[in-house]
């Protein structure tokens, strides 16, 4: 499933909304999550999972091809931890509701 499929499915489920409305809402959902993470905020969606930002320190790395030492800058990486309900459902052990 892609974002486009998701928009279409939401659109079918809510005939009162136009396709454009469905698109705006779904884009806002993910944009607001990207923004929040950009500000280092933690996101928690009950039954789905949480997103936390982990900090990676600057380190020295190596170009695996040439062997030259390169410095890798400190960075922030997103980390997703699946929620209990979804974890069980994915594993075929949850209720579908």
């Amino acid at each position: 499933m892609t974002k486009r499929d998701l928009i279409e499915e939401v659109n079918r489920k809510f005939p009162r909304l136009s396709r454009r409305d469905a698109e705006i809402i779904i884009n806002s959902v993910f944009d607001s999550m990207v923004d929040a993470m950009g500000h280092g905020e933690r996101i928690e969606i009950r039954g789905f999972g949480s997103f936390v930002i982990k900090h990676r320190r600057a380190r020295e790395g190596r170009n695996p091809k040439s062997g030259t030492v390169v410095s890798v800058a400190a960075k922030r990486v997103p980390f997703f931890k699946v929620g209990k309900e979804l974890r069980l459902r994915v594993d075929g052990k949850g209720s579908s509701e």
Binding site: M1, K13, I25, F48, R89, V90
Partner: peptide, 13 residues
């Protein structure tokens, strides 16, 4: 709509 969005994603996964 937001609830449905996450529910659809969960159903597919």
């Amino acid at each position: 709509v937001v609830e449905a969005t996450f529910e659809i994603i969960k159903g597919r996964l």
